[in-house]
Design a protein around this nucleic acid. Sequence first.
DNA 1: TTGTATTTTCAATAATTATTGAAAATTAAA
DNA 2: TTTAATTTTCAATAATTATTGAAAATACAA
Lengths: 168, 168
Amino acid sequence: MHYEEGKRQFIQTWGRLGSEWGINRSMAQVHALLLISATPLSTEQIMEELSISRGNANMNIRDLLDWNLVHKELVPGDRKEYFRAEKDIWEIARRIAKERKRREIEPVKNVLEQLQAVEGDKNQPDIAAFIQMMEQLNSFVGKMDTSIDVMLKADQNWFFGTLFKLIK
Amino acid sequence: MHYEEGKRQFIQTWGRLGSEWGINRSMAQVHALLLISATPLSTEQIMEELSISRGNANMNIRDLLDWNLVHKELVPGDRKEYFRAEKDIWEIARRIAKERKRREIEPVKNVLEQLQAVEGDKNQPDIAAFIQMMEQLNSFVGKMDTSIDVMLKADQNWFFGTLFKLIK
DNA sequence: TTGTATTTTCAATAATTATTGAAAATTAAA
DNA sequence: TTTAATTTTCAATAATTATTGAAAATACAA
């Protein structure tokens, strides 16, 4: 396979993976494009490469900046903004984990804590089952949360290395 | 908060979490309902509780069966099918991980392996950057894949216990 | 078998989510 | 300042995804 075809396929694969995991396809494609670019790209270049509109490009670049996956880069003598992606995969994984934890897991955790304490007759099987499930979920989500904290503080090789010792 | 309100909130929270992670909201809500039910439920009961159509209920129950998160239960003397969810959270997490690995990660892994070997002049910075990124991604996705394998074979307490030792 | 309950399918429709494109706002050079 | 380049916003529209509901298929009891 030639590079051009590989590039096309990578962008579309990354986009599909993103949408399977609840991430806007264009955002994932902009990310893919920046991931494999040797140089920072302008909004124009991104629009051009992906055949998307200025509004779409702009909005998704902003989102990638919010996720800390991309940063602005100044090119001396050029008024345009350029964008470059973080290239270290472990760092990317940590930033995604950090944001999903903050945006999606913590809010659920807060709700579950409330729900553990519902009022009602615990002799009713449905109420007992509900409370038991909330307790189990609280415990599990708490452990997931701590696991992410472990990951956020860890070095890649150490993290995987220690994990893999489990299997032996 | 009373049980009825808690139940409503749990179903909607689980549904929202699902859709943030690329899972159909109704499917997540059917799952939530079954997770907290002390007894297996029929399609009719699910339709009623969630105010959804028969087609929708049926399709999402099938999907949950495909994900191995729910199984059929026979009620003697009743022709209807009843459904009960797996209640052990660690087991649920493993089954979800197993399916997402099979459906989403393995295909990406296969594509990335191809892409690592694109043809082109490696003195061109973009081509060099592309290949380098594919190598990094392959290595990372391989480790993620192995991590899931570790999880699939592990016991919950052992898994988290060992992980948490990392932080101390 | 035949009739009835139950499940499945799927075309039509609705709801949601993403995208466009042009106007408004902002920025910075002249 | 004024002007022009650039970025942002957002209402309109398009694309995608989910849902309905009724007909078809299936399963089962009589």
